[in-house]
Write a protein that binds this DNA or RNA. Structure first.
Lengths: 341, 341
DNA sequence: CGGGAGAATGCAATCGATTGCATAAAAAGA
DNA sequence: TCTTTTTATGCAATCGATTGCATTCTCCCG
């Protein structure tokens, strides 16, 4: 346990008989320092095994070059794509990325927010938890002018850039596709209506129905948290009703999957008797039997965009007075669960 | 942009006409400070909107109460389970968790390691990238006595606690199961042999064969990086050989999936003609048709264990002179891809 | 050769919280 | 009432890097 003290710029300064400020500047490639001195210092630093104490520098400069990311669940394909997009841009620009998951739990989200704030991240990108409906914990950031970018599950009440997929159009495309397949009784398994994304998916669904002259029917619209279990329950309810749907638009792929499994177990043919469309294009959607028609969201691009907007704000160091909400296109992917051969 | 200066303990001290040290101690619930003063200070702190500057404290104390986690890919079910286990324990013990993914890329892993080191995380839990075969970047931590715990993809060369699933037994169980199904020509799609986990899975496979009096055959053992594409290629190669296998043990579920899809497309019946077993129990394994028999690893428990061991080392602040490698049990899950009805 | 511009370097304060040690205040004991 | 303990609080240094300003050194030009 020879806790050898770390080499500091002062040690280097002493060794070379110069001042610490010169060392600091040289290591940061400050042009004020002559090339010769810079080289000499860097060489000495390397030889002495110098490792900059970033914490000290962060403390002094009040910057950490770190972006905090909060997502509900890191193992959802959509979220991990967004994260990859964020990382792509962030690393390029010299920022580290610290990822956390809220597990869709408000308290955890709040704890994470406090922790990121306490650690003085330069900015935060987040998609809020399903449970979240109070935004006190996010005021932390706005109070101290720490830029925030929302994506997917955004918050209307807070002034910030927002990146969303075109959920309305997604819902619309999915439903119109089912209509085009000749379906008349199209049900929907929707998500919590406090989240705008689910409102929008549903609005798209309703618009498509109306456009086709079909009457939206409340008995055909269910809401839950879109887990596997919720999905099973919902499809069960739909299929045990007096009037059965001949198609179901599910607000995520998980419930689409539940539905398919339930229908298979109950010997109801997909898509012949009931057609299914999901949302998100999770990897499993492609590989289950029948493969699931779904809506693809440009996760990677959304992540890149979010990171770009955030970093721009961090660098210009002043709050824009106008924040856009950027909508990125969604796309219908047609697979076997919705098309009778 | 009223960049109001933050409230510091000095502001509180001035306001209450006491010293900053007292404020600091009070806020940390140091029993040296009387209960009355403590209350008074906390009240003032709350009123003044005081937010501790954790960066300053970290700088001073040389602790960050943060654990770094490096995994190859966050959206693999196994890894995200491990992360959840780590988080469970870490949050309970007052540590924040900073997650990063290497994308199985050596350079990125190295960058992340440097970044975590620079930010002075108190400890690191990691599973190395497939590409990684040099461990210079990890010496950073051992040099400065920053505890490290490996899991899953471990490194023999480095002295540290290691948590692994019983890969040998997993490979053994999978293979024995196939033998019990009457298969005689059992092939294996294995992973990079620089990683011990894949060596062990293969060793289990070979042992099971030998135990049953079957001769392992090099033509039946393929190695690759276990991606979707690799899997397709491998199964193609196996099926186009003069002697076809009647079963394939895949070192992960991804290649098991590729195999199933390839076989389906080529009208080869699974499991009747070729039985398949995968590894890891990814969520999709359960839902594809046929569902994939696989080996389940206790990811959540591994994460908890890793975090416990790491935090213990962080707290006792001295390197143990003996590091165990902890092996956690794996379990065979039998599904449709390996059992003819 | 003196003066001055420009380049290179140094000085010293600073960021905010922590902590060993000194001191003051209060309580206990004589 | 005066020591001696015990309990509370304050002083001041410290962590390591950064940075505004001052100073020194070069070099060029008139």
């Amino acid at each position: 346990m020879s806790n050898q003290p770390e080499t500091t710029i002062h040690d280097i300064a002493k060794a070379l008989n110069i001042s610490a400020s010169t060392v600091s500047r040289a290591l940061n490639d400050n042009p004020l320092i002559s090339q010769a001195t810079r080289n000499k210092i860097k060489k000495a630093a390397a030889e002495m095994g110098y490792r900059p104490n970033v914490v000290a520098a962060n403390f002094r400069t009040k910057r950490t070059n770190t972006i905090g990311v909060i997502v509900p669940l890191i193992n959802r394909h959509f979220f991990s794509s967004v994260i990859s997009g964020i990382e792509e841009v962030a690393y390029e620009q010299g920022f580290a990325v610290s990822i956390s998951q809220s597990n869709d739990n408000f308290e955890k989200e709040s704890k994470i927010a406090h922790s990121l704030f306490a650690n003085r991240v330069d900015g935060v990108i987040l998609s809020i938890a399903m449970e979240t409906s109070s935004y006190e914990h996010l005021k932390l950031f706005s109070e101290r002018q720490i830029p925030l970018v929302f994506f997917d599950r955004i918050v209307d009440e807070i002034h910030a850039y927002k990146i969303v997929a075109d959920d309305f159009r997604g819902g619309y495309l999915a439903t119109r596709h089912l209509i085009e397949q000749g379906r008349k009784r199209i049900a929907m398994i929707g998500g919590p209506q406090n989240l705008r994304i689910y409102q929008n998916r549903q609005a798209g669904y309703i618009t498509a129905l109306q456009e086709a002259g079909l009457q939206p029917d409340d008995a055909f619209i269910l809401h839950n948290s879109l887990t596997r279990k919720d999905g099973t329950q919902a499809i069960g309810k739909l299929m045990n009703a007096a009037i059965r749907p001949d198609a179901v638009f599910c607000a995520n792929d998980t419930t689409a999957l539940s539905s398919i499994i339930y229908l298979r177990e109950n010997n109801i043919k997909v898509p012949e008797e009931v057609a299914i469309v999901g949302f998100s294009n999770e990897p499993f959607a492609e590989v289950v039997t029948p493969s699931i028609s779904t809506i693809k969201q440009p996760g990677f691009e959304m992540g890149k965009k979010a990171a770009e907007l955030l970093i721009r704000q961090i660098n210009q160091k002043e709050t824009p007075d106008y924040f856009e909400t950027i909508t990125m296109p969604t796309e219908l992917i047609i697979r076997d669960s919705s098309v009778s051969k």
